[in-house]
Design a binder for these strands. Structure first.
Length: 478
RNA sequence: CGGGGCGUGGCGCAGUUCGGCAGCGCGCGCGGUUUGGGACCGCGAGGUCGCCGGUUCAAAUCCGGCCGCCCCGACCA
């Protein structure tokens, strides 16, 4: 039999990163811009972001978070106030030094994150414990001058949301930190169909300026880990240097305890790498710009008839994002490949033979199964299959993760697993950062997180052999 | 930032060894025939050969410098 599908993207097994880039470009999610490390987020990709954004934004608002917007530029004097913070970001900060020909009295940095400028405003707004908590999020872009960039995963400028909250005490702030981590977990698993491991970062891996950093970690199709979102308990460090204090009910002046949490367009990269296959993108119905594409097979003699029925079919799919591809210049086969590459969950084929039989042919993107559906039942079947596919994609990704999750008793074993098949690797850890760094040095794997649901540690540290204090999740990471 | 590879019409590439008319496939435009897994025929448009400099009668090709992209490693959402 002849080759059934056209070669247009790199082989996913042989060259995963080339496959990833091919999908990004060929599916028209993004394109390279004439700016170092920057990309253009094209309409099809941006629509995915809008759908994800709308859902996550709704989840934030359900917890009382409001949206606002703060400036792109941050005065150097303000950013420098938190020592650990500036030290962490200094190497990748872009500076604004001139307005026209004139040199500015003070340099501004293009925000790499907004803790300091938002905190500065909180200092003005917060006087009393009655003003707390303050729960604000902003959708914006930030800039970090990374050395090596990859579309969506690591770009010089990227879109994200950053939430910043101020609280009366540590307990309230910590509760918010965990609440937002759970919002991310639910969003990623339920909406993007990406299974994640929630956990706490080690001191080596935490956010510059945070007391504790939590993240949700996902496993990509090539066995590498990706941090999909983070939530930080910042303590009162930022409050102290920025002067965010309030008068408590007991008459004492106190500093607020803060949190911040963020998720970026990196999750678009995760979608590609978790769900994609040899034929390209596979989108969960929840974030698919088109959930259904109708491809009419319309020879000249029956053209009007087929297109008329195709339009009726589209109109009958209320509440579903449907696209009728009636371009005459492309053949049906071309369209099949095109929409599969772009990840549309369901394709409906409608041709003369179907009209005679009073049916359409339904094909699911994830399993490729094709079957005839009577026209009267198409709407109902589409709804059912979209819902089923959402769940199936999650379960498939979860199964892949289970199959690629291992245990390592020592560094040798960890190294062997990484060479052989990568994936998530659990191992005992004594809690010493030196052991963590030694493992990284030798194997390239880092502790992605200390999973929250991990059972009590048993056995010994994989590196030094002392009793394990944690059950750590190791992986090579993006 | 280190190691490797690559920059030639929109995309994928040949040509570079050994200097001598810039080519091929796809795509694009027009006309015609076509439509159940990337249709076919004909005509046509489109290139400062990544950039700057040098050698030469002559440079995509040789020399020097620079820039960009990709892959593999050290830092990050």
């Amino acid at each position: 039999m002849e080759r059934e599908y056209v070669e247009q993207i790199a082989d996913r097994e042989d060259s995963f990163s080339q496959w990833y880039l091919d999908v990004v470009l060929r599916a028209e999610l993004a394109d390279y811009a004439p700016v170092r490390g920057c990309m253009v987020f094209r309409p099809y990709g941006y629509r995915i972001w809008e759908l994800a954004q709308a859902d996550l934004d709704r989840r934030f608002k359900e917890t009382g978070v409001q949206n606002a917007y703060f400036p792109l530029l941050i005065p150097e004097s303000i950013f420098k106030k938190e020592a650990e913070h500036i030290e962490g970001f200094a190497p990748e900060v872009a500076w604004v030094t001139h307005a026209g020909q004139e040199q500015l009295a003070e340099r501004y940095l293009v925000r790499p994150t907004s803790e300091t400028i938002i905190g500065t405003m909180y200092a003005k707004w917060i006087q009393s414990y009655r003003d707390l908590p303050v729960l604000i999020n902003q959708w914006c872009s930030v800039m970090r001058w990374e050395r090596r960039t990859v579309p969506f995963l690591r770009t010089t400028e990227f879109l994200w949301q950053e939430g910043h909250t101020a609280h009366r005490d540590e307990a309230d702030a910590r509760e918010r930190t965990m609440m937002m981590l759970e919002v991310y977990r639910a969003f990623l698993e339920d909406f993007l169909a990406i299974p994640v491991v929630p956990g706490r970062k080690t001191p080596n891996e935490k956010f510059a300026g945070a007391v504790d950093t939590y993240s949700v970690e996902a496993l990509m199709g090539n066995g590498r880990a990706l941090q999909a979102a983070t939530s930080h308990y910042l303590g009162d460090g930022f409050a102290r240097v920025l002067g965010i204090d309030f008068l408590d009910a007991d008459g004492q002046r106190k500093y607020v305890h803060m949190t911040s949490f963020g998720l970026s367009w990196r999750v678009i990269g995760a979608l590609i790498m978790v769900h994609g296959d040899d034929r390209g993108l596979v989108l969960p119905p929840s974030v698919a710009p088109y959930q259904v594409v109708i491809v009419p097979i319309a020879p000249e003699a029956v053209r009007d008839q087929v297109l008329g029925e195709a339009r009726r079919l589209a109109d009958g799919l209320g509440g579903v994002r449907v696209h009728l591809d009636d371009r005459p210049e492309y053949t049906p086969g071309w369209k099949f490949n095109e929409w599969e590459l772009r990840g549309v969950p369901i394709r409906l084929e409608l041709g003369p033979r179907d009209l005679e039989a009073g049916q359409a042919v339904l094909v699911r993107r994830d399993d490729g199964r094709r079957r005839p559906v009577p026209l009267a039942q198409v709407a109902e079947t589409v709804q059912r299959e979209l819902a089923a596919m959402q769940g199936d994609l999650y379960r498939r990704a979860a199964r892949f993760r289970e199959e690629n999750t291992h245990e390592a008793a020592g560094v040798d074993q960890l190294e062997a697993i990484l060479q052989d098949r990568r994936g998530f690797i659990y191992a005992g850890w004594c809690g010493d950062g030196a052991c963590e760094l030694a493992v990284k040095e030798r194997t390239g794997a880092t502790i992605r997180c200390l999973p929250l649901d991990a059972p009590a540690p048993s056995g010994n540290c994989l590196h030094c052999g002392r009793p394990a204090q944690h059950r750590a999740l190791f992986a090579r990471a993006y």
